[in-house]
Nucleic acid binder design. Structure first.
Lengths: 229, 229
DNA sequence: TAGTGGTCTAGACCACCCG
DNA sequence: GGGTGGTCTAGACCACTAT
């Protein structure tokens, strides 16, 4: 019964984590490992390639495969739809539109999305509730030239995020997290005190270089985002 | 000249993004695609496997390969050392210890790290400066039983994070982000007003189930973390 | 039961790069 | 120059699962 690349991967990871293979030292060559495991170089290659992709190893032609001192661990934060996040917590989801209107992009947004001066955007403000408590206040701008349908769309009953997934494919995504202070407006919508410290996410997407949408998501106090790596 | 799996991957990604292959529909089988590209199934397999890993496709035996409606985009935040983050911005880095002391773990930390009641921890408070401005205030607890060396270590000139990388390997990592309000102490160290809204990261690591360290990182006002996907 | 992806083998050529 | 990883080919068997 042949040994699988998964087995080889697991064995190698053990050796790394138990420091049998010391940080900053070189592994045996693929050919040698293949002999050791009675396998082929193709199979060993896949195991090591994946361990390198996961940040444990660095591979270079001729030099060989080296154990990284501090494994580069990338924490992944899944930025999902509010509905999914709330459902996953076992809470009831409700959406509510605050208002929407088509107008020229605000000045600060122009450089941010690399818009043309005076480009039309659909501005939407809305709320996401978890068990009838405000969970997230969302402010979003959708570029009308890139997503023409948006001019005729009412978001009274349609969640902007979910509509976009179906109607505006994107290829580029940038997400950032920051802390901010609730102003009177946001505080009102989230039902918190003005000046409260809020977790904020900003998300912009584009389609092959063309700007699609920019969103600011204000989370109710106490929110945190977690990732295991 | 044979076609590479990268070429195939790029062509397939184009077809997905241009909706030539519609969301929720099935791709031709690997064997058919291999014919189309005058390649082999092995090569096509690698291309599709990677696209699936990146969240564009879902693959199942017998059913085939399906285009996902909303590509699952995972934003990756590299959690790096303060020194690296500050250097990357082109600023000068400086470290300063506030204090350190060995004592019993505070009550709230016990369940958090699944410690034994009364376990000894090294408590460290320190600062990271960028161009002489406070950048991050760090409060950290290192479990002495898991990392015995810590009892004899002075962090006056040694950055805890960097020392841990060399002396305490870890296998498990949890990171979370939240917003918090600066109390008087933190405000003093960061040179901001008390009550300011701060971005906070919490990071705990373990070694095969054993707790190693827990850290709270308070960033100076205005900090944000960004990821492209 | 049949079709599809998952994986392994055995061999080959090549690109890169250190000495 | 020579060793190492990167990749492709051609073929095979198997595991899963829809029908």
């Amino acid at each position: 019964m042949p040994i699988s690349y998964r087995d080889i991967k697991r064995i190698c990871l053990d050796r790394i984590q138990q420091r049998i293979w010391q940080p900053n030292t070189y592994l045996p060559s693929e050919a040698d490992l293949a002999k050791e495991f009675s396998s082929t170089r193709t199979t060993v290659n896949r195991a090591l390639r994946e361990l390198a992709a996961e940040g444990y190893l660095e591979r270079k032609r001729k030099s060989g495969t080296r154990v990284l001192q501090a494994p580069i661990r990338r924490a992944q934060f899944a930025i999902s739809l509010a509905r999914d996040e709330i459902s996953a917590r076992g809470s009831a989801y409700r959406y509510a539109l605050v208002d929407q209107n088509l107008s020229a992009a605000p000045q600060w947004l122009v450089p941010r999305l690399e818009l043309d001066e005076g480009a039309e955007v659909m501005h939407i403000r809305c709320l996401h509730f978890a068990d009838e408590l405000p969970f997230q206040f969302e402010e979003r701008w959708i570029v009308a030239d890139t997503v023409p349908n948006v001019r005729q769309t009412s978001f009274a009953r349609t969640v902007p995020n979910e509509w976009l997934v179906r109607n505006a494919p994107f290829t580029d995504l940038t997400v950032s997290f920051a802390a901010t202070q609730a102003d009177d407006i946001v505080a009102g919508f989230l039902g918190c005190t003005s000046g409260a410290s809020l977790f904020m996410a900003e998300r912009s997407t584009g389609l092959r270089g063309q700007p699609v949408t920019f969103a600011r998501l204000y989370f109710a106090p106490g929110y945190r985002v977690t990732a295991k790596a």
